[in-house]
Design a protein around this nucleic acid. Structure first.
Length: 109
DNA sequence: CTCTTGACTGAGG
DNA sequence: GCCTCAGCCAAGA
C-alpha cells in the first residue's frame, strides 16, 4: 500500500503527460485537480523526478505563466526553447497569451 | 526531533 | 500591477 504522497507524485506525472500540445498549466492547477490545492509546491517538488519520466515539465509553469523552473532544465534557455517549439510565445521567461493557452485539468479534463 | 529550503499561491497594502 | 507576509507540505542536513 503506497502512501498518498507517493500516489500524489504519480498523479502529477500523469496529469503533466496529459497536457495538450501547445498548451500550458500551472502547479496550482494540477495540485487543485488532485485535491491538494495547498500543495502546489509539492507539484514542483515532484517535477524534480520528472526528468527521468516522459513528463513535459516545460509545459508547467507558475500561476503567472513565468518559467520559474527553467533553472532545473539543462542550459539556460532550454525550457523557453521547447515552449517556442510548440508555438508558445515566451518573452524573458514570461509566457505570452498565457490566459489563452492555459490548460486547466480540473476544467478541461 | 528541529531548522532550512523550495519548479507555489492567495491575501493585504 | 508590484511588493511583502503567511500558509502549505515534503525532503535533506
Amino acid at each position: 500500500m503506497q502512501k498518498e504522497t507517493l500516489n500524489f507524485f504519480e498523479k502529477v506525472y500523469q496529469v503533466a503527460k496529459l497536457i495538450p500540445y501547445g498548451r500550458v498549466t500551472s502547479y496550482g492547477a494540477i495540485a487543485k485537480y488532485l485535491g491538494a490545492a495547498k500543495s502546489a509546491r509539492m507539484v514542483g517538488y515532484a517535477m524534480n523526478g520528472s526528468h527521468n519520466k516522459e513528463v513535459p515539465a516545460h509545459r508547467v509553469v507558475n500561476r503567472k505563466g513565468l518559467l520559474t523552473g527553467k533553472h532545473h532544465f539543462e542550459g539556460t534557455n532550454l525550457m523557453q526553447q521547447l515552449l517556442e517549439s510548440e508555438g508558445i510565445k515566451v518573452k524573458d521567461l514570461q509566457i505570452q497569451d498565457f490566459n489563452k493557452i492555459f490548460w486547466d485539468p480540473a476544467n478541461e479534463l
